[in-house]
Computed example of a mutant assay.
Amino acid sequence: MGIIDRRIAERGHSTDGFAGLAFKAYLHARKEGVPSSPDNLYAPFYLWHTTEGLNEFLCGPGFVGLTQSFGWPSVHTWSVWHAQMSKEMTRAKYATRETVPIMPHADLASLRRAEIERSRELLSSPDVLATVAGFESTNWSLVRFRLWSKMPERPLDGQVHIYGVGHVSTG
């Protein structure tokens, strides 16, 4: 994890101002530490304004360097229903990501409306700096992502992953 920490410190700024990028949050969690995790994790989270920006990144030298150093990653993509960011989001210290299954034949329009409302309500909290709600239709799952200025309370259900934030880049 020391390698990851150094890489974020030395290269995190390289995605600042990247065309088409809304933000990239450099996320990490540790077996021992805060936030704690069953495994050591580096889990960057990107929100793109355009698929063109995503494609430029994945086909570019930064991604090549990452894959040569750490291997070929699995890149998960979601269709974004709602994203809202405060001007202060680069101050984020923590992030949460929750993935929830969507049941077959669910009323997606109602689910989308509810998630947008939930997302908007959460951003009214002074501790929430960004919120994203989206879904993935290959295995039908909902994702809720948040950036926080301080450690959020851990829910009891265990479905929410909490990460530390090493850096936040904006496009």
Rank of each mutant, 00 (worst) to 15 (best):
M151I: 15
M151H: 14
E117G: 02
A130Q: 06
L156C: 09
T131Y: 06
G134D: 02
M103W: 04
H167S: 04
E121M: 10
V165M: 05
P101S: 12
A109F: 01
A133V: 04
W148D: 02
Q159N: 09
S125D: 15
T96V: 01
A114V: 03
P155N: 13
F135Q: 13
R146H: 13
S137P: 08
E115N: 14
V168Q: 07
V128K: 02
M103P: 04
F145G: 03
R144Y: 01
R118Y: 03
R146P: 00
S141K: 13
T138H: 02
H161S: 10
A114E: 13
G164E: 04
P101V: 03
S110Q: 11
T131V: 12
L142K: 11
S137L: 07
A109L: 01
F135V: 14
L111D: 02
R154S: 14
I116V: 15
A114C: 07
G164V: 00
V160H: 00
A92W: 06
G166A: 01
P104M: 09
L123F: 05
A109R: 08
V168M: 04
D127N: 13
R154G: 03
N139S: 13
E117Y: 06
F145K: 01
Y163I: 02
P152H: 09
R91D: 15
L111Y: 01
Q159H: 11
E121I: 12
P126V: 12
L147R: 10
I116D: 02
P155L: 07
L122I: 06
E136G: 07
E121P: 00
I116A: 12
K93R: 15
I162L: 11
L156R: 13
E115Q: 14
R91W: 03
Q159R: 13
Y94S: 05
